[in-house]
Design a binder for these strands. Structure first.
Lengths: 350, 350
DNA sequence: GTGAAAGCGCTAACAA
DNA sequence: TTGTTAGCGCTTTCAC
């Protein structure tokens, strides 16, 4: 018999259905989940009744009891940015296909929020975690703890220097190399790089790609022309002003992200200079809006959506294979895309 | 005594802590939640131990037991779009301040996904719901059901024709009116509108604002120059081709969203025409990238972030006041912002 | 101030 | 095929 509800909530429970149908709640539970135990006849009857009574399974109870929540926690640094927005879209689409729910949290590039969100997600007993590190994150203790707990964790794009975790990244180094290589090939020699923090993998890798190309062509890297910093518009704006504060100007600037390039565009415009005539520009990543600005910035294309899909799928693999799962390291290819900047014409004109 | 775990998970529980400290699990529970029952002395001891043992409260169990999840479900049509991205940012920030977790789901503008997500969220026993309808949504039965369940639900931006729900909107009609009014004042007469579906409130309201202004100035609304449809880039692209397929061309186009304007920009460019010389443009909403495209499109500014904040806060009010809560209808002001299109100069040149 | 007992809604193991 | 019995980990009375 269904016990009387202490709370006034009019949520229908298994007991309610069982009582109406004069069967046990176990039968109802099994029927609703399509368990082969139940005859299709009673199953039909139960399903109909459940629907009619407006029954929604209580996932909290189900998760608590079954020790899995069908839920994956995600931590990203930003959300209102093209790159992450499309990665997230990839994650959501894939989750939807697999009938998983996503708990998305946003660190806003701060280590403190990131940690708090991770704690939250652990408390919510998500089945797995996809994390893209904030630009501040240096303390990696939680991740070790998570590994000890045996909870599947996949790092995406912004990954830590840590063993034993699955990582899904784009080929940052190769992409940066291709971009700089192109700049050199069309004749540029004085190349600046608005680089990312060197404690982040993407900062390091893209910088390395830049160095690779410079070294290959025996070009000197000017210290004043490499500025390390964050990944946002403000950073680009500030850095460019700094570079143009000194006497010697570069011919072209390669930025670590698209937002940084946007900051550059705004600053350059403010200073009354033109791209590519006064200064040329290249960047890593882009935005759907790129083709509307003129000149459209030539960029390194990242597999955004695919990064999202892959992260989810590998996390799911890990959940399913559990103990026997072996961490994988995925590097998805990047591609240099020539648009309106850094064209041969622009370089020749110098 | 802590019962032996059936599952191998090494999640620490209240019992584990209680056992170590030779107290009851109730004491631990209370201490950890700062219940005044417990002496600060034991409370300290317990907290320390819990931290040391790496305890994370099991929110599933807590929610199940306490009948509240400290979680709010959100359903939006899109995520990789400036408008929704910033609304969502507003929601997340506010939730964070109030220690709530957000379960964000994305309908991708389809009614089917929307419904499935709503079911999911109900099953997860979220404490409240914030919904922005998909462009397809016509069946409103679920929402009635949710009201009957007594679950707080706030509609945001895309709201249904339904009584008894809190709604948070921008002043769409007023904003559209201001834009068209401006266009008329600078001398335009042949005005087209790429309008939204008329079964959506934003489609209707913005169209109404357009009509208001046209009527006020006794201008004829040309049927071929009003195209109803969706809110994305593709729609803008298609519609503009349609309009320019006929002999008579408008002087200026007002689009129902920024993405639609982007579609227009791309189509216009493709057709070898220039803005504002060949055709002028205005739109509802914008994107951070707008100032980089030239000319920047003059637009109606929406209070994106604020819409997010408000929705969350009202939902929280509803949760807290429960039965006594009276639905509110918020209309946040919009503002016409003149940029590089629809300037006096452009209009005069005709 | 502390704890024993009951229950949140569900699932899993084992009987019947 | 169906039901009984125990939990999942926590909170909430209500005694002590």
């Amino acid at each position: 018999m269904a016990k009387k509800r202490h709370h006034l909530e009019l949520q229908v429970t298994l007991d309610d259905i069982a009582e109406k149908l004069k069967v046990s709640k176990v039968t109802v539970s099994k029927a609703l989940r399509g368990h082969p135990d139940i005859s299709s006849e009673t199953a039909e009857k139960i399903k109909k009744k459940a629907h009619q009574m407006g029954y929604y399974p209580n996932l909290l109870a189900r998760s608590l009891s079954s020790q899995k929540s069908n839920t994956i926690g995600v931590v990203v640094p930003k959300i209102a940015h093209h790159f992450f927005a499309s990665v997230i879209e990839g994650i959501y689409d894939t989750a939807f296909e697999h009938n998983y729910e996503i708990i998305l949290t946003v660190s806003q590039e701060t280590a403190e929020r990131e940690l708090r969100h991770i704690h939250s997600l652990l408390s919510m007993r998500v089945d797995g975690l996809i994390i893209s590190l904030s630009e501040e994150t240096k303390d990696l203790k939680v991740f070790q703890a998570i590994k000890r707990m045996g909870l599947p964790l996949t790092f995406m794009d912004r990954v830590p220097r840590l063993n034993g975790f699955t990582t899904v990244e784009a080929d940052d180094r190769g992409g940066a190399f291709a971009a700089i290589q192109h700049a050199i090939e069309i004749g540029y020699r004085r190349i600046a790089h608005l680089a990312g923090y060197q404690h982040t993998n993407i900062g390091r890798e893209r910088y390395q790609g830049f160095l690779d190309a410079m070294n290959k062509h025996n070009l000197a890297v000017k210290k004043e022309w490499v500025v390390f910093g964050g990944f946002d518009e403000e950073q680009g704006y500030r850095s460019i002003k700094q570079i143009f504060g000194s006497a010697n100007h570069p011919e072209v600037i390669f930025t670590v992200t698209f937002p940084v390039a946007v900051g550059v565009l705004k600053a350059v415009r403010e200073m009354g200079m033109r791209i590519p005539d006064d200064i040329d520009l290249l960047c890593f990543g882009h935005s759907g809006m790129n083709e509307l600005i003129s000149p459209a910035v030539s960029y390194v294309e990242q597999p955004n959506y695919q990064l999202g899909r892959m992260s989810f799928e590998l996390t799911l693999d890990h959940i399913r294979e559990k103990g026997s799962y072996v961490p994988k390291h995925i590097k998805l290819p990047t591609r240099f895309v020539l648009c309106g900047t850094c064209t041969e014409k622009a370089a020749v004109r110098r």
